[in-house]
Design a protein around this nucleic acid. Structure first.
Lengths: 193, 193
DNA sequence: CGAGCACTTGATCTATGTCAACGGTAGTGG
DNA sequence: CCACTACCGTTGACATAGATCAAGTGCTCG
């Protein structure tokens, strides 16, 4: 479909800074595998209003629909520094196994997202942190405004809940020279519950 | 992977009654394409507690992960009478195009689900009805308890909102012999808004 | 007939939204 | 260097959408 040169097997990755837009809805381009970082997807309605449509974390595929439709369906924005690489690699058509695995993962990811948007506020925030950590025991959280949109809460509520978790010792703000580093960093502990 | 006979090209479909469990999480079996009806997916946690994990509507693929893992990840329950057929058909491995289209659809469906679980209650209920109608101008809604779990509202709230839509003439209860038919049926009008 | 389920409606409670004020940091431009 | 603006985060006071509790209806099924 795309005429890609045999492309270096590694080193073909691209990095994006926090806040960068990887692609806009409607643009054409290729599909990507997210190797590192967290990406937010938004659906853009007729009036140009963006509404939160999903998260991608390391291992997820971004913009696969462009291989079929020739245009991205969502806007993708980096919530943390990200690294992506073209997918499928090396100009090959996606292998059946790989596609099937990707499909299964997309359905599991959808279930994860649903859990972020139901039940008590604190449970949602915990679930969001756990999802964003993606199995690691530390994670750099995005801004509280972003967390608010992810969980469908207000940023004031997020602020109160994160403070509460911090006071309970369940997350730690990262400080530089004893000063709260501009954008907050947190280390979740107690993966359980 | 599965040894399927060359299988009749059509007529190989299976029907399920409303409320029927198509498969349980952990069971082994094949994957299905949902041809008609609405299916609810639930994740079953360690204690056997089911939590809502997604919806499938006509055209969606159910249980594709069993082709990879040999077991279903979710429990699937029919919310309306359903018809499914084995996927991919005829014992063939899934075609690349078909898989890619299915993947893209799964990601769109995930965005739909997210919209059902954010914002004002009435907007969520409207979005749920629209999604369940899946482009048709009539739809038989599942019970209010199901709608409540789909939208993360309470069934009393759903009851009040549906009554409100009914009074506004935007949905109609179907009556048999002038009597409210046991399980409620509704016809949404005004697809817009 | 009784048990169970789906639905309706009213009264009340509360988790979270909303509004407001304030502090810290980064960037920009004179 | 000092405004000045723009974010990001914190915290308090208050409002309210929706949850919760409760009572009752009607239908189905055994």
């Amino acid at each position: 479909m795309l005429e890609r040169a045999v492309a270096e097997p590694t080193g073909s990755d691209t990095r994006h800074r926090c806040g960068a837009v990887l692609f806009q809805a409607g643009d054409s381009g290729e599909a990507w595998r997210l190797c590192e970082g967290i990406v937010r997807l938004d659906q853009i309605d007729g009036d140009g209003i963006a509404s939160f449509a999903g998260l991608a974390i390391a291992g997820d595929i971004l913009g696969c629909e462009t291989l079929l439709l020739g245009a991205y369906t969502f806007r993708a924005t980096a919530l943390t520094p990200c690294r992506v690489e073209p997918w499928p690699g090396g100009g090959l058509p996606p292998a059946e196994q790989s596609l099937l695995a990707t499909l299964a993962q997309a359905q599991r990811r959808a279930a994860d997202m649903i859990r972020l948007r139901g039940g008590q506020a604190m449970a949602r925030v915990r679930a969001a942190i756990r999802l964003l950590a993606n199995g690691h025991d530390t994670v750099v959280l995005p801004t509280q405004t972003q967390l608010a949109e992810i969980t469908d809460l207000r940023f004031e509520t997020i602020s109160r809940l994160l403070k509460q978790l911090e006071r309970a010792g369940q997350i730690l703000p990262i400080r530089i020279d004893g000063v709260h580093a501009g954008r907050s960093f947190w280390v979740p502990t107690q993966p359980g519950h």
